[in-house]
Computed example of a mutant assay.
Amino acid sequence: MDGARTVLEALSIAVSAGVPTLVWGSPGTGKTSAVVALAESLSWPVEVVIGSIREPSDFAGLPVISDGTVRLAPPAWAQRLATAGHGLLFLDELTTAPPAVQAAMLRVVLERVVGDLRLPDKVQVVAAANPPEEAADGWEPAPPLANRFVHLDWPVDGRQIARGLAMGFPVPSLAGFARPASREQVMEARATVAAFLEIRPALALRVPSSSGTWGGSSSMGGASAGNPPDRGAWNAGAPGSAGHGWPSPRSWEAAAKLMAACKAAGASPDVLAVLVAGAVGEGAALEFLSWLEHLDLPDPMAVLAGPDAFELPRRGDRAFAVLTSVVAVAVAAGDVERWNAAWRVIAKAARTAPDVATLAARTLAGHRPPGAEIPAALLELSPILRSAGLLGD
Rank of each mutant, 00 (worst) to 15 (best):
L91H: 02
D92I: 10
D92P: 12
L94G: 00
L94K: 07
T95A: 09
T95M: 03
A97V: 02
P98W: 01
P99L: 12
P99K: 04
V101T: 12
V101C: 13
V101S: 14
Q102A: 11
Q102E: 13
A103E: 14
A104K: 06
R107C: 09
R107N: 09
V108P: 00
V109K: 06
V109N: 07
V109E: 10
V109Q: 06
L110M: 13
E111Q: 11
E111L: 12
R112N: 08
G115L: 13
D116V: 10
D116A: 14
D116R: 06
D116H: 05
D116P: 07
L117S: 04
L117Y: 14
R118F: 04
L119H: 00
L119A: 07
L119F: 03
D121M: 13
D121I: 03
K122V: 00
V123E: 01
V123T: 03
V125E: 08
V125H: 04
V126F: 07
A127T: 05
A128K: 12
A128C: 06
A129W: 10
A129V: 02
N130K: 06
N130I: 11
N130S: 10
P132H: 09
E133W: 10
A135Q: 13
A136I: 12
A136M: 11
A136P: 00
A136H: 10
D137Y: 14
D137F: 11
D137T: 09
W139V: 11
P141F: 12
P141S: 09
P144A: 04
L145H: 10
L145N: 05
N147D: 15
R148P: 09
F149V: 10
D153G: 13
D153W: 08
D153P: 01
W154P: 08
W154K: 01
P155A: 04
V156D: 04
V156Y: 08
D157R: 08
G158C: 03
G158P: 08
Q160I: 03
